[in-house]
Design a protein around this nucleic acid. Sequence first.
DNA 1: AAATAATTTGAGAGCGCTCCCCAAAAATGG
DNA 2: CCATTTTTGGGGAGCGCTCTCAAATTATTT
Lengths: 344, 344
Amino acid sequence: MPPTLEEVAKLAGVSRSTVSRVVNQHPNVRPEVRERVWEVIRQTGYQPHAAARSLATRRTQIIGLIIPQAVTTLFTDPYFSILLRGVADACNAHNYHLMLSLFSHRRIRDSYARQDLLYQQVLRSRYLDGVVVSSAPLDDPIFPRLLEDKVPFVIVGRYPHERANYVDVDNVVGARMAVEHLLRLGHERIATITGPLNMCAGQDRLEGYRQALAAWGISVDERLIVEGDFTEQGGRAAMQRLLPHQPTAVFAASDMMAVGALKTLREAGLRVPDDVALVGFDDIPLASMVDPPLTTVRQPIEQLGSMAVELLIGLLENPQTSGVHRVVLPTELVVRASCGVRVR
Amino acid sequence: MPPTLEEVAKLAGVSRSTVSRVVNQHPNVRPEVRERVWEVIRQTGYQPHAAARSLATRRTQIIGLIIPQAVTTLFTDPYFSILLRGVADACNAHNYHLMLSLFSHRRIRDSYARQDLLYQQVLRSRYLDGVVVSSAPLDDPIFPRLLEDKVPFVIVGRYPHERANYVDVDNVVGARMAVEHLLRLGHERIATITGPLNMCAGQDRLEGYRQALAAWGISVDERLIVEGDFTEQGGRAAMQRLLPHQPTAVFAASDMMAVGALKTLREAGLRVPDDVALVGFDDIPLASMVDPPLTTVRQPIEQLGSMAVELLIGLLENPQTSGVHRVVLPTELVVRASCGVRVR
DNA sequence: AAATAATTTGAGAGCGCTCCCCAAAAATGG
DNA sequence: CCATTTTTGGGGAGCGCTCTCAAATTATTT
């Protein structure tokens, strides 16, 4: 049986309160007493009991990372590993712990029911001090609930509500840069494979595409816009549907979809970039590994994760700080071979 | 302020104990009372407070997934995403929660200190009911500690201790199959890029390699054995060192390393499989995406994760069940183009 | 030296839940 | 119909910690 505060107190010849003060770095303890207590703590290997502490302080030091929806695919996308790394790192750095809430991908059918259950269990039972939400569609029920329950949360992405804090990248500008790059290379029939249009990132990247075309005075051919789902499979399927309309360039709203599109193009006997230029989004490691290497829009995924956590911890530790916290990070166009750099 | 047990009890006109019984499905409550209590619970949205419950029951319903060491790279390997998915799924299915403990990859220097801290914080403070450990080197200090503290744990991999429970794949046989396949194709100068040799999987796969050669009466040329670290970079570097010895085939102990080797080979002007045959291990999605598609040894990664969790939960819920729990899953050779299937 | 202020310590009351134990009520049996 | 068993509900004592408040001690000021 591990020792309790009480026992440490007895051994050190002081009261519970004093040990508590020592453990929690309260100032008003005589140095010699403090040292004596530390000595006992060291010898006994005392460690405060998390649950007891949480019960008294009403804080758990646990942050949740919630990725709603049935997301088989989302997890084959390295985007998540990278985000997770950022999140985990920031948690470590600030002595918070990380609880991961994914949702079963096996049965999409009951996924909402499960999500509901998890929400109850995890959030209402106060396991978490706050949460980071990523990759949720805009109409996900989690947002209204979080707001109603006044759970501190930060979104990786965006949500149109005054009390929503978020960290996002400038998807519109990123997408516009990508498409403008294609335009500069002389393309006019530029197609796009969008992300899911119920997600902010999906919408924004499409918006960037539209803006770029508009800026160049090119009218949008709606047949060149096909909705994907951020997965490789989705990219393949979307590209399949685009083929009949013979685009000379394709902007895919994620690298995974670009890779899918690449395969479909190749299977159709088209060469990239010679016959069709291709640009992705994310700059995941795979982007530079495929053949040809993918021109893409880099977003600082890891940083997105760690900033979200830091914002959240700021919220948790200074609740009085009013105002909403929002950060938008820049993107960067990474030119590789897949877009076919032509002579000026 | 969310309602407490006490308040629910008052509203339902019963005592705390009765509500507790209802919530915890204890039998001895009259159906009509039970229904009345449920009704109040529903109306008030009551949810038991996790910390209070944990304090009383000494269980948290949280499982930890621990991936020790500074693992930048490990997380670019989809292996982890897939494992994580298995783990998360199993947790969801059994109403456990998942806490993720990674270690900062930024500063390798203080990684052991951090690991120590985390160990204290997470395990000794009883945040977790039990843990799943993956990808730990055999000499990782976590194993003796877990054993000493009697923390219930399951390893994904293996550890030579009588009280160590684990889930593993048959790495020796898997590797042997891979190498024997190359032997059957007529190769004799078969090199191997091993995993880290302080990890079980690294050792076992090397052992499989040796066994295959031995079975065919081919003596091992130690210059054809180069240690890698499971990363793509490591694979590149290892292949670089192998080039001078002109192997006609290479068995890489992970797909990521195989991909790295592939690039080095290509840069050296060698064609795969024509000049050098290549076999990997894991069968991550990338394996079928590279050119040429990788012949590899498939291991059921996701299942590994979920079985580990299920074993652990079994341990937690039936502590009396004596005996050690060990599962070894089979592997399967997946033949694709990279090994160059020759005519019989 | 006395009075006041500041610092250090301890006692006690929770935090919200579980679970043991006993009383009341209901069911059973002779 | 009363004694006995079984079911049902309630009271209370924790689980291990924090935190307020007041007492005790020490330092500072007049």
